[in-house]
Amino acid sequence: MKEDSLFKEDAVFLLDNRADDTATDILKMIGNKMTELGYAKESFKEALLEREAKYPTGLRIEPYSVAIPHTDPGHIYNPCICVVKLKEGVEFHEMVNTQALVRVNFIFCIALPEGEKQTNVLQHVMGIAGNREMMEALNKAENPEEIYRIVCEC
C-alpha cells in the first residue's frame, strides 16, 4: 500500500468540530470536500448521506470507535480514503445493530470507483482501526500532515 496509497495528503482532515455536531454535518463536510478536491462527483454527498441513513457504518472498536461511510462506485472519479479525525466525538448509528449509537472519533470514508479492488482496501482500513499503537498515534497527532504520515506507514 506504499506507492499506490489510497490515502491522499489533501484528503486528511483534523476537524475542530463542536460536540453537538451530527454525523450528517460531518458527512456533508466530507462530501463537499471530496467533490471539491476532484475525487467524487457532485452526486457523492447526497449518496453518502442516503446510504449512511439506510446502512449505517459506525463500528464499536478499541481503542477508538470509527465509522467507514461509503457509497456506490458510480459517484467516484478517483480512488481515495478520506481520513477525518474529530476533535469532538460524533454519534453514528452502528452497523447491523442500527438502533444503537456509537460515538466515533475517526472516520475513514472509502471512495472507490468501479473496478477497484475493494476488499483489500477494507481489510487495510480495519487493520489500522484495530491497531492500538497506530490509533493512539493518530489520537496524539496535532495536524493533518502527521495523520497522513501515520496512516501511510501501515
Partner: peptide
C-alpha cells in the same frame, strides 16, 4: 452473515442470521 441490519433481510428461509461486524472489527 449480515453487515446491514438483520431486519433488512426479509426472509432468510430458515438460515441462521448472524452479524458480520465481529469479523470486521475482530472483536
Amino acid at each position: 452473515l449480515a453487515t446491514v441490519s438483520v431486519n433488512s433481510i426479509e426472509d432468510p428461509h430458515g438460515a441462521k442470521v448472524y452479524s458480520g461486524v465481529p469479523l470486521l472489527t475482530g472483536i
